[in-house]
Structures are given as C-alpha cells and as structure tokens.
Amino acid sequence: MIYLELFLAFLKVGCFSFGGAYGAISLIRDVVLTHGWLSEETLTYMIAVSESTPGPIMVNLATYIGLSQAGISGAVLATFAVVLPAFVIILLFVAALKRVWNHGCVQAVIGGLKPCVIGIILATGVTMILGNCIRLEENVTADIRSVIVTVILGAVLFIFKYLLKKKISPMWIILCSAILGIIIWEIR
C-alpha cells in the first residue's frame, strides 16, 4: 500500500509542479505533511540538504522520502514517479514545439504561468522563512538565531545585488549560511 501511496503522491507532484523545483516545494510539503511522512521541521532540513546536494531538489526530496518510507524500492519508485510526468511532457512538447510555439494561446498560457510560478515560489520562501524564524509552541516566539542568520543572508544578497551590482553564486550563500550556523549555534 505504501508503494501505491508513494507513486501516486509523487506522480501528483510531478504533474503539477510548474516552475521547477522551487515551485514544487509547497506541493511536496502538502503531500508529505498530509501523509504524515515527515514533520515540518524534518522537511525543512531535507529541503536545505536537497538544495545543497547535486541534482534537482524535487528528485532529491522524492528519493529521500521514498527511502525513509519504503527503503530502496520506495526511493526508486518515488523518484520515478516524480520525473515521469516531466519526461512525458517534454517528449510531447518537443515533438509539437515547432508547430505551436508562436500560437497566441500557447504564448498566453506561458504568460499566465509566469506570475503564478513567481507567486508560488514567493509564498514558499515566506512560509519557510516564517517557519524557520518563528516557533509556534505554547506561545509564539522568535528563534533569534534563525532571525540573525536570515537577516545577515538577506543583507549579503542585497549588498551584492543592489550595491555592488554583482551576482552571488548560490554556492557562496550556502557556504555563508553554514558558517553562520556553526558560529551562531555554538554561541549559547
């Protein structure tokens, strides 16, 4: 039964994940929490690990969740299910691309999906920031260490992008975050 649940859940994620992995995080979150496969905190950690390891986040998360729920065969099945829709859609899309690309309806759909994807990514980012920085236990409290790391990383991104007019590699942000985490969480 778990195999069917994993397959259908990640097939759903693969079918409705427009905008790539970041757009899929909210859908993966919904599926994983609905099935009770991971806690919110564990999922947040796994998103961070999936972001920092090679490969697409969505595939890494599917593989990890499949492995945690049904072993290696669950990992293979969840990974297969999450990539199957994209594989089929890309094959069909490439076959029809030359004929329909300039059609008004296709351009309208693409134009309509762009703001939707941006909104999904933004909502996921805000949800993750709030979930990481605010603890909802008996009363609402801020995790000051998480807030400090978030503010510092936000300031670094702002300085590079708007003041220095340079792009900063995500690798440096991840490294900076890891160093900040080591420093700040070791200060008691």
Rank of each mutant, 00 (worst) to 15 (best):
G20E: 09
F80K: 11
K166P: 07
L6V: 09
A81Y: 13
I187M: 10
A48I: 04
E5C: 09
T44A: 11
G104P: 07
L91C: 07
K98Q: 02
A24N: 03
E41N: 02
M46Y: 13
V126I: 15
L8P: 09
F87Q: 00
V59K: 11
S68E: 05
E138Y: 12
M46R: 11
I159G: 07
F10G: 00
V126W: 11
V13Q: 09
L157N: 02
A155P: 03
L4D: 12
L11N: 07
L130C: 14
V88I: 11
L180H: 05
P115I: 05
Q107G: 04
Y64V: 09
P170S: 06
C105L: 15
T42E: 08
F10H: 00
A123K: 15
H103R: 08
L67W: 04
V76W: 14
S68G: 02
L92V: 01
L175V: 15
P54D: 01
Y64T: 01
G66N: 02
L153P: 00
V147E: 12
R135V: 13
T124K: 11
C15H: 06
S50I: 01
R99N: 07
L84Y: 01
L113D: 03
P115S: 10
V31F: 05
V106A: 05
Q107C: 02
L33W: 08
F87D: 03
T53G: 00
V83C: 08
G55T: 02
Q107W: 07
E138P: 12
I159M: 03
L122A: 15
G14Y: 00
W37A: 14
A24H: 02
Q69F: 04
V126Y: 12
N132E: 10
L136K: 06
N139M: 13
M58G: 02
I182E: 07
Y64D: 03
V13W: 08
S146E: 09
E137Q: 00
I182L: 10
I121V: 15
L77P: 08
F10P: 00
A75D: 05
G71A: 14
E40N: 09
M58A: 08
S26D: 14
S177L: 10
L92M: 06
G19D: 08
I148V: 11
V32P: 05
A142G: 13
L67E: 01
S52A: 04
K167P: 13
T53W: 05
L27Q: 05
T53R: 01
A86H: 08
I182V: 02
M58F: 12
I183C: 13
I184E: 05
Y162S: 15
L92I: 06
N102P: 06
F160I: 12
D143L: 13
V149I: 09
H103Y: 02
G71F: 12
V117N: 06
A178Q: 15
G20A: 12
V94A: 04
G125D: 13
I152N: 08
F80G: 10
S39C: 11
S146Y: 02
V140Y: 15
L153C: 05
L11Y: 09
G154Y: 08
L157C: 07
T53P: 01
S50R: 06
P85Y: 00
C116L: 13
N60L: 09
I47L: 09
P170M: 14
L113H: 04
A21G: 15
I72K: 10
V100D: 00
I47F: 07
V156M: 10
Y22C: 15
I47A: 10
S146F: 07
N132M: 11
T42H: 07
I184L: 04
V106L: 03
A9F: 11
V13F: 07
I47C: 14
S17T: 10
L91H: 04
A24K: 07
